[in-house]
């Protein structure tokens, strides 16, 4: 698979994963681009030991985690509220609320639920994150429960 087709196939998926992690358009775009820079650099060495998808999602997840080091450089809380509101691409409140809820979860949960919503098999999620499949299943169940509760409160 050449880089161009990987880029086209995975851009939206990787962008959504990053968006679920930081819930900030520009920041998510930056992380997604950093991910594809790594993909581009490492593609010649890629040996198909895992599927391309697993490999790319691993790189993206690790780039997301790396943001902790950069968090101080661009603290989201310092942004004026108006700017954050203008930045929303879509006005669909429910959809924004979902991303907001996910970005508030603990870091690993954000990654797991984003991968699950991206329709990645649980076995593959396990291999991306490095925990057992059973553990992934339990975590997904709990996260969905949490999200459902938040949505119930939101709706009523």
């Amino acid at each position: 698979m050449d880089f161009e087709s990987i880029y086209k196939t995975y851009w939206q998926k990787i962008f959504r994963l990053c968006m679920g992690y930081v819930n900030d358009n520009d920041w998510a775009k930056d992380i997604a681009q950093e991910t594809f820079i790594t993909v581009w650099q490492k593609l010649p060495e890629f040996r198909n030991e895992s599927s391309v998808g697993t490999w790319i999602f691993r790189i993206a997840s690790n780039h997301c985690l790396r943001q902790i080091e950069r968090h101080k450089r661009m603290p989201k809380s310092n942004l004026p509220v108006e700017i954050e509101e203008v930045k929303s691409v879509n006005n669909e409140p429910k959809f924004n609320f979902l991303y907001k809820c996910i970005a508030e979860l603990p870091e690993i949960d954000r990654l797991i639920i984003s991968l699950e919503l991206e329709d990645i098999k649980q076995a593959e999620i396990a291999s991306i994150v490095g925990i057992s499949e059973a553990n992934v299943r339990v975590k997904i169940f709990r996260i969905k429960e949490k999200l459902t509760k938040k949505f119930e409160k939101y709706e009523y």
Binding site: W11, Q12, A32, E92, F95, S114, D119, L147
Partner: peptide, 11 residues
């Protein structure tokens, strides 16, 4: 529901 909402995000 979640998956549909999730997929609405595009850049």
């Amino acid at each position: 529901d979640f998956k549909n909402l999730w997929n609405m995000q595009e850049m």
